[in-house]
Every structure is written in C-alpha cells, then in structure tokens.
Design a protein around this nucleic acid. Sequence first.
RNA 1: GGAUUGGUAGCUCAAUUGGUUAGAGCAUCUGCCUGUCACGCAGAAGGUUACGGGUUCAAGUCCCGUCCAGUCCGCCA
Length: 465
Amino acid sequence: MKRVLTKFLSGLVGEKVTVLGWINSKRNHGKIIFLDIRDRFGIVQIVILPGNDDYEKAEKISIESVVSVTGVVVKRPDNLINPNIISGKVEIQSEKFEVISPCDKLPFELDDTSEVSEETRLKYRYLDLRSKRMKKNIVNRHKSNQFIRNYLSKKGYLEVETPFLTKSTPEGARDFLVPSRNQAGMFYALPQSPQQYKQLLQIAGIEKYFQIVRNFRDEDQRGDRQPEFTQVDIEASFIDEKDIIKLTENLILELIKAIYPEKKLTLTPIPRLTYKEAIEIYQTDRPDLRKDKNNKNELAICWIVDFPMFEKKDDGSYGPSHHPFTALKKEFINDFEKQDPEKVIAQQYDLVINGNEIAGGSIRTHDVAVLKRVFEFLEHTQADIEEKFGHFLKAFMFGVPPHGGIAIGYDRLLMVLNNENNIREVIPFPKTGDGKDPLMDSPCRVEKKQLDELHITTQDRKRKK
RNA sequence: GGAUUGGUAGCUCAAUUGGUUAGAGCAUCUGCCUGUCACGCAGAAGGUUACGGGUUCAAGUCCCGUCCAGUCCGCCA
C-alpha cells in the first residue's frame, strides 16, 4: 500500500493507509499501546489493542526504530484531540505493524537536545538532526536558499560556480592546501572567497553574478566561525555603493518577511553609520542597536560605511584593512599616497544585525593604474606584484567595467534568524572548535602510499618540553 | 599561540571545610496498568569520579603534568 505522510492524515478519516517513519514515543498501558510515528512533517498516534497479531511486537519495539503501520484513520473524540501534533484530530487503528529497522539504545535523548553536550551531539549528528529544532533549522536553510536564488535570479543575477581547487592567496587568512599529484611539490589552495573569480566574471561581461558558495579559512574557531562556511556572494558591474546596499538590504528584508515573519525591525529605515561615527559612539564597528536584547524576535539592522582603506600592522607599515582591490572614495584617488594613511577612506560597507557582522563588501578599483599605485603603496615590489597578482592585473588590461559587490555570511545570518547562539546549529555537519569532525573522525592519518603519490613526507608535531 | 571555565552512571547534574557504602532526574531492563500523548506506579541494574603522578591517616574535592571540550584574546586581506 502506498505511503501517506502524517500531514495529510487528518483529511483521510475512514480510509486505510500506511505510514512509515520512526517511533517518536511509546506509551504502554498494559491493555492498550500508543505509538507516535514521526516522519519529516510531524507525528501521528497509532493505537494497538490486545488480540492484534502484532501486539507483542509493539510491546517490544524500541524508540527511534523505523516501522511501517497500516490501519484505518479514525477521528478522535473531541476530548482526546491533541492540538500539538499535525495529525492531532485523528489517529490510526493499527492492523499491520512491521519493524523495518530496530533502533539500539540511544546515546542521548532526542526530545530536547539543547542541553546535551555538543561533542556528543556531533558524534551522533544523524540522531541530533532528528530533533525538531535541528529539522527546523535545516528546513529554514533550504527555504532561504530557494528564496535567495529566486530573488536574485528575478533581478537578473546569474548563479555561476567557481573552482574549489584554486591558487593560494598571499594575503588574508591561512589557506587550506591541496597537494598536486601531477606536479610534485605544487599545491592548490581552497578558496577563502571567490573574490578574484567574481571580479574576473565582471571583466568577462557577466554583469550580475551570485553564488551560494563554500569558503575555506584555516584560522582558529569561534562560535560564529568555521573552517568551512557559506557565503551568499554577489558582484555586479556598472553599479555604485548605494546600489549594492539597496540590493542587499531588500534581499534580506524580503527574506525575513517571507520566511521569518515573526521578526520585528527596531530601526526603519535601516540606519547608515560611518565607521568613524560607530567607533566614536559605540566603540565598535558592529554595534548591537537592539532596544530589548531579551526579545528574541527583535532585529536591529544597520550599515557601517566609509571604512578606512589602510590599517597599521604590527611592524608599523600599512596593510589593506579589507583587501587591496577595494576602491578608494573618489576624493582620495588622486593623492592618497600623500595623505595620512589612516584617514584614507574606502568605498567599503558592512551590514550588522544585532551586533553580528553579517555582510561586507566594496566597490572595486577597475583602473589598473590606481590598483598598481595601491600595491606600490603597500610596499610590494614590481616582481612581487607580478608573481602574486600578475594573472589578475593582466585581465585589467582588457576592458574592465566599474564593479563592486558584497558577501553575506550566510551561516551567521541564519544563526541570528533562527535564534541560535552558534553557527554550528545551522550547519548540518559542522566541525568542533578544533576543526575536527567527531562523526567522520576527520582529519585523520592517511596511508603511506597516498602520501608517496603526493610527494609528501610528514613530520609529527614535536612534543612540548 | 595565550587566557579562562569545565570533564562524576548512557544523558543532564549534585556531593558542606578533604571524612560513612559517590546521589538524583531522565534513558535502559523487569513487573503492574484500556485513552495516554514528555502516560503513570513499583523495583532492578548501571561508576577505573577523563588519564598519570603527588600531598594526606583519609582525595570526586588540594597540588603538578597530559588529554578532551566550551568561551574569549591573538588570528580571521
């Protein structure tokens, strides 16, 4: 018999159906057994009475086993309706009960996973994800993906995939490296962001690009940082700072309206603070502007604009505060080298929600002469520039549209919208703070044969004295 | 790399100033229970107190080291 999902059962009173799913709970009253069967959409109560051929099977069944139940859908009497479950107005009188796959003793209880240690949850993530809370986060993430793709597509943006096996970038975060088998001693790097590719796509004439894409950074973890994380990456040509800000703002506001309608905005229209103002007033470039921080449905969104272009490094020299491709504000282009480096302002903007940096982007320099001057100012030698950025600068010789973009830290956005304190809660299979995956037990050692093929010898970390 | 908090039953926690046989709830197992829906009741089982060393008549508790986990700083163009 064909399977019926729990969400359709209330409309099928009197019909014989089969439901498939997991045993959510079992209540044995001696002469009557209730089983709650759970599928992706909800729960239905099964009733089994003595005399039923499968009564003993039902007595013995363990919670979280996968079962099949065939029986007639009956209306519950008014006083026995359970409004808390999707099929609460009906129940199924079991005629045939089959165990498809039994469940062993559980390592933790699934009803409320918020108080189980994260290590245990991650080790058995496939059980953790059965919980209502995790399922909700996964469903919302899917809905958000669909919404964003649809929204940006309607605006004329093309989703373009960029490579994961790419080139190590000299600045920024530490790279994850992938050894090349064909080229001994050579390495690919996993992208810290598709920054260069998305700019090259503008030179390629794509004009409007987006991608929901994984990024990799080999830095130490935080509650809002993972070694691999997802960005909604956007780049467009012939636009200015205001256009990108408007697009991003509308995208996020529409997303919230569609999928998180319970959320309320504290500040409308969304305020724009300069970096200088934010630091002076709030001593941070990601202020939390909520009025009531205990209200889980309050969202205080703001933009921080006019970031400084350069920042002083430990050795006293200057580095780019974001990246060297960031465009200067027009008034600084002609003579930024002669000004106080800390007062040079870039066309750079960040979106902050409830004190979390959710998105950041900039207009990029499309004039190759200005780009070279920035590199020179950052004390790169000509040979250095050629080696590190030559491939990129070459492209700038062939007709570059003015362009800019933004990247939304998607996991952080979802963390805030799903009322979680940690991005690991909105990532199906996250790593621990140490960059490990307790479920797959990665990273792990590999066989010598594999290392030999990759021309690699390893050295165990020296013990501390 | 640094700081800090923690590691006690399958899970979540307790254990007074260092002092009797390390307790409780849930989960598990056994028995009872025909309307529960986180069912209920009675009972049982379950411990190398992360690991190693030290102080002490006596260590879950104090000290040292190691391992593991969380949070924060550094780091994150």
